[in-house]
Each structure stands twice: as C-alpha cells, then as structure tokens.
Amino acid sequence: MTTYALDATALGMRYRRGWGLRDCEFQLPTGRISALIGPNGAGKSTLMRLATGLLRPTTGSIRVLGEEPGRHGTHRKLAFLAQDKPLYRGFTVAEMLRAGAVLNPSWDDEYAWRLVREADVPPQAKVGTLSGGQRTRVALAIALGRRPEVVLLDEPLADLDPLAREDVMRTLMAEVADSGMTVVLSSHVIADLDGVCDHLLLLAGGRVRLQGDVEDLLAQHRVLIGSRELVMPDGVVEARTTERQATVIARTGPVPGWEADEPSLEELAMAYLRSARAVAA
C-alpha cells in the first residue's frame, strides 16, 4: 500500500459560519511538490491546519504519512509554516532557534543555523523588528530545522517582494533537491507555482475541484478554439463564446473541427476556478 504525504477521506470541517471544507477526498504523493490552489476562503488554510492537528475534523479524517494527527503535537515528520509566519515576537533570532531546538527532538541545529546565516539575518535581532522576507527565512529555517519529511507552507510568498520570493523559493527547492522531502504549498497566485509544482490540488468553496499530476492534467485537457456552430466536445470545463467564435477548455483529446492546444497551468486552474464560482453563483 502506498503511503501518501497527505491522505483525506470524507474530510469536512464545519465552522460556526458554515462548512470550511466538505467531503474532501484527496491524496498528495510523497517526494513531490504539490500546489494547493484556490481563491481566498477556499479552505486551503483549514486543510493545512487539520493536517497539523491544530484543528480536528468535523467529519472524516486526514492522515499524515499514514497517521492521523494525535495529541502529542504535530507529526514529527511534518513541519508547518503558517501564513503570518508566527514566531515569538520578543525573542531574538538566536532565541527562536533555541526554542526550535528544545521543542523538537529531531532538531538539526547546524542546519537551521546555516539557513539563517545564508539569509543574512542578524542572530541578535528581535523577531519583531525583522522584515517580512527575513521573518519568512527564519520561520522557514525553524520549520526545516525539524528535518521534516513533509513540509506544509501556507501562502509562503504572500507579502514578500520579488527578490525575497525568489530567495525563499531557491532555498526551498535546494533543500528539496538535497533531502527529497515532500512540499505542499498553497497560493492564490498561480503564476508563483508554475514550474515549481508537479502535483495539483485545486480547492474552491471548500471542495476539491481538480487533483492530480500537473503534466497528466495538462495532457488530459485542451484549449479548443472554433466556430460557435460546432458541436461541443465532452468534458467541458468552461466555454466562452463571442458572436462567431467559441473558446472551450475541456477534459478531452483533439476534437475534429476545433483548433486544439494544451493549456498552461494558469489557464487550466483559472478555468476550473471560474466554473466553480459560476456553479456557486
């Protein structure tokens, strides 16, 4: 039996205001870089918080490397970096690293310090005085210092300037190349994930809309352009028409009469997100 990095069965999370996630079935494979895509409020953060054990599901279950989150903290092989990069504000960077060391038996001090040094963050600086980019680098160093097999990053690039984004992604990818760890990262900016992710989980309205290997998904879909008189193919995700012309994104192979292209990741994701929104409305 394959062990997945994350594996959800009938997963649901109900808040006072309604369902944050509902009936979610998905598997994210190990050794891959998975993108968690969806608009704000789609349930991306909820999903990650369920995996860490910060939240307990209302229905169903989620397993991390085959184990449900227990009472003894987050799975030892799982690291989580929340969107607002929570750290102890009054601590210095060096003290934050010490906190990482005492809170984690699997801590790799040398490695965490190396990541901080590479980021050029002064160790005696108070966490509260760091820039967004530095804060992210420190939080990432502490997350990776646990030597996780799976790392969950919730909107890691939000609020970062382009240089800091590039730095963070390069650090992260280099560590993946070294350790072969599994990465799950969420974003509502799909362009950030193109070329980085090889697996996709698309959420909208608390439900899974699309999942799978990115290349397979791209190969299975076509952007079709043709006369609006033509018969629509099967598996239409989204169709837009002008007076004469129709542009269709469909889960299909080549269709006679239509000009067919493989979609880009962004085109594909946007089509699913727009169609989910149209259904909801």
Binding site: T52, G73, P86, R89
Partner: peptide, 16 residues
C-alpha cells in the same frame, strides 16, 4: 492574540 500559539503547537510537543 499574536498568533504565536500556532508556532508552539506545531512543534513536537502536545497541547497539554
């Protein structure tokens, strides 16, 4: 308030 509990509780120690 500061959200730092999210850090504390996603390390290798339990809530208790």
């Amino acid at each position: 308030e500061q959200g730092a509990h999210v850090f504390s509780l996603t390390q290798s120690i339990g809530r208790t």
